[in-house]
Write a protein that binds this DNA or RNA. Structure first.
Lengths: 124, 124
DNA sequence: GCAATAACGAACAAAATTGTGAGCCTCTAT
DNA sequence: ATAGAGGCTCACAATTTTGTTCGTTATTGC
């Protein structure tokens, strides 16, 4: 649980006020989170499909991360109608969908410099 | 210190292998980190200038975050020549510079949905 | 000669995140 | 009737991140 008055929490709030950048990063920076968003965008929109994609995740952790993403309105949970053993799917909201291309550019950025692109400094 | 064999560390490695997206996010997700990158890109490239921009940060934490950013080759530390009480500046590498526009789009994404843009679901 | 500025480092403590163990419900196939 | 899939929740423990305390080096200004 968060301690409202810890220095850590105060600093977090401070950063949120400095720029939305910091709250944006806070929303996507948990373990598994951005990968979950990306997987859902690829069609793995059911609990068990996500489990298959992320074999090391425990169900408890997956449930928790999905709940947090839902709290940030990045996705919504929805019962699939007409299915008898119920069945729940996760759908990205417009907010979540807008995030996907940004995640893709982050991914490309990571790939570019992992694959040996030289690091240099333009000194002036 | 990191425990190489903890489940946490193993899961982190697993995600790094799934997609560079996850390592990219790991590099920028520490407290203060992306704000530091952004501040440097705005010209606050000295230790004391960053302290002024981020009044709540302690010097020790600032030093640590700068070191981590340096370890990820996002910035480099450099002595400013010809200055007598030495003087050190932090310069973004090409990797760091390429990151800035992505941070800006994350910032805009955050702003868009903070300012009351409606959340909706396109249900097919 | 004493305080202040600039730029940190090590060791430790507080707080937060992530993972684990156990359990619950509904339905279906055997 | 029993096991298995699908879909979770809660409380607690392990690990990691973040912040604190104290100390250092070197130089300038008073």
């Amino acid at each position: 649980m968060r301690k409202e008055n810890s220095t850590n929490a105060i600093n977090e709030q401070f950063l949120f006020q400095v720029c939305e950048l910091n709250s944006a990063i806070a929303m996507i920076s948990g373990r598994w989170k951005s990968q979950i968003v990306y997987s859902i965008s690829q069609g793995n929109n059911r609990f068990h499909l996500l489990k298959k994609e992320l074999p090391n995740i425990s169900e408890q952790v997956l449930g928790r991360q999905l709940k947090e993403l839902e709290a940030h309105a990045i996705l919504v949970k929805r019962e699939i109608p007409e299915t008898v053993p119920f069945g729940i799917e996760y759908i990205l909201t417009n907010k979540g969908l807008d995030l996907v291309p940004i995640l893709e550019s982050l991914c490309n950025w990571g790939k570019t410099y992992e694959k040996g692109k030289e690091i240099s400094v333009c000194s002036m």
